[in-house]
Design a protein around this nucleic acid. Structure first.
Lengths: 154, 154
DNA sequence: ATTAATGCAAACGGTTTGCACTACT
DNA sequence: AGTAGTGCAAACCGTTTGCATTAAT
């Protein structure tokens, strides 16, 4: 139904999926799929546009966003809003997981499934809230930035 | 240093704080403070503008955003990006806490300090990441929406 | 009088849309 | 040929900025 969540080869089938839906396989879509298949985790809309432009400078934002919509309907990506305030697309072949965001260095770490489970379990136990494990985003300071912050003034 | 985290009366001191910094107390700022003092938790920039306009229809966005910056420097509010993709301001007199966001009904619940502690502790233990407990935002489905979703098709 | 703050209007960045044109099928 | 998809350019929304004006001090 949705593409194999593991293999990047799932992208090879996009063309056929499109055809199966009566949709078309165009150079622009090829470019976009090329970008997405080389992306792990998430990426913002404008980043997608940017990367597509590296491959094909004639890339147009509207086409990218529209195709992203189509791919979302086919189950290849999903989008929501990220901490940086822009549309953020999740590329599906990646394992679903939450993120830890350091506002010191801007770095990002994955929240392990076991951790997500623990968090989800705790919150669910208290009030029957079903946590969306793939979208947990927690901010703070990573080890490095914590040290830097507490060590010297700045 | 920063205003008393508990009493809303802290807002009464804004005027003096401004004066102490050589800044001015204007009708527009009075309106904004009125809105903020009646706000618990968080609010987006455009919502602030909207509410100020209810009190004073002549309110201008630029003034609101600029004053919000000033108040942030004074420690009355802090801002970051919310799940809905817009600037989100935290009004400080409120207890600091994270939120649970239901994307079924759009509702929002507070994450208890004890829960935040547990989450922060777990994440810190694994990789020395210092969680910002006041900004934990977790999405999912609340009890009501979970039932609605699994119960009947829609 | 001084200069912080305001209001306007225009700019910005990311995203969306209408429409005529192109090109996959 | 027929219609999905494209590119352009303009619109949108929330936010930011420059600048001349207003007003708190």
């Amino acid at each position: 139904m949705t593409p194999d969540r593991r293999s990047e080869a799932a992208w090879d089938l996009v063309r056929d999926r499109l055809h199966a839906e009566g949709l078309r396989w165009t150079p622009q879509r090829r470019t976009l799929v090329q970008v997405l298949s080389g992306t792990r985790g998430h990426i913002t809309g404008s980043e997608v546009v940017e990367r597509c432009r590296e491959l094909d400078p004639t890339t147009t934002p509207s086409t990218v966003y529209r195709t992203l919509d189509v791919l979302e309907e086919l189950g290849y990506v999903s989008h929501h809003h990220g901490i940086d305030g822009r549309e953020e697309y999740h590329v599906l072949p990646t394992d679903e997981h939450g993120h830890l965001h350091c506002h010191g260095c801007g770095g990002s770490w994955e929240i392990l499934p076991s951790e997500a489970d623990a968090i989800a379990g705790m919150l669910d136990a208290g009030r029957s809230f079903t946590v969306d494990r793939s979208h947990i985003t927690i901010t703070g300071l990573c080890a490095g930035c914590t040290a830097a912050t507490s060590g010297n003034g700045a």
